[in-house]
Design a binder for these strands. Sequence first.
DNA 1: GGTGAATAGTTTAACAGTTTAACTATTATT
DNA 2: AATAATAGTTAAACTGTTAAACTATTCACC
Lengths: 153, 153
Amino acid sequence: MDKKIIQELIDRYVSVSFEVNKKAESLIKSQIEEDITIDQHYIIRYIQNSTECTSSELAEAFEVNKSAITAIINRLADRGVIERTRDENDRRVVYLTLSEKGKEMSRKTQEKVHLLVESLITQFDETEITNFINTYEKLALILTNMKKEEMGE
Amino acid sequence: MDKKIIQELIDRYVSVSFEVNKKAESLIKSQIEEDITIDQHYIIRYIQNSTECTSSELAEAFEVNKSAITAIINRLADRGVIERTRDENDRRVVYLTLSEKGKEMSRKTQEKVHLLVESLITQFDETEITNFINTYEKLALILTNMKKEEMGE
DNA sequence: GGTGAATAGTTTAACAGTTTAACTATTATT
DNA sequence: AATAATAGTTAAACTGTTAAACTATTCACC
């Protein structure tokens, strides 16, 4: 690829990813706001989609320290959204699950987020958006490998 | 588009955008960390690319309240990274500029971020990454229009 | 030209999320 | 049995955020 073209692509990518992130996050916030934050929403979503979720798993997925997860989980547990249960075989491990209240909360916000994303996606034709998501997924893979290399060093 | 395909695309989009955001942010953080946060980095970047930057402009671009901007600017001004100058014609307005120290800081972190993004982008062929960014920019436009509609209501 | 509304920015209090370091409790290693 | 490693928590310190009240200035318009 030409040096100049690469430079232009870099600038465009940095700008557009910043802009989309900010705008999307702000729209999601305006949709879900029924007393939970965006991070709490993502934590709840993750727990629901995971079979046996632990703090360590969340810390890895969210790329933060475990103590940051403890803080978020504490707030949600205090409000009865999340429940903790110890593993009987390995008593160091604590499994995180959604309470009935948490599940209901998750269902509601998930629905709103889906409607929002649907209204975005359906403005493209199928080929374009499919290609976009395919490339996006490749990018995720590249980033994962980069991360692994970084750890290896 | 088929209902089922849309559902699948939504799920894939939500998952992949979350994953890429977290990973990219974490990589950027590991690159720039010379005493500034990611948000500070973005603020510095914005000021550098803007001709006459104000707090209100930043608040709009970052989709946060003006007082959040004040807090960030205070920290950077205390450290001599950013300077404030009042507009002589409209004394309510405060322009934000980078000090020499700020410019140097910006140059360094910009370079690192560029190298990082370059190493991502060059793993795709030109057509694929160009198409990707084109669609991404369309998405940004759609989000901007959505935001406007939301305001209009 | 003076008054009330609008605008730009700041302050304060309260809270969410984050890191680092030290800690408890448990399990694995040797 | 002694030492390492692992899972999770706690505490202190910090950044970023909102909401509401505030200062200072400019605009609108009668």
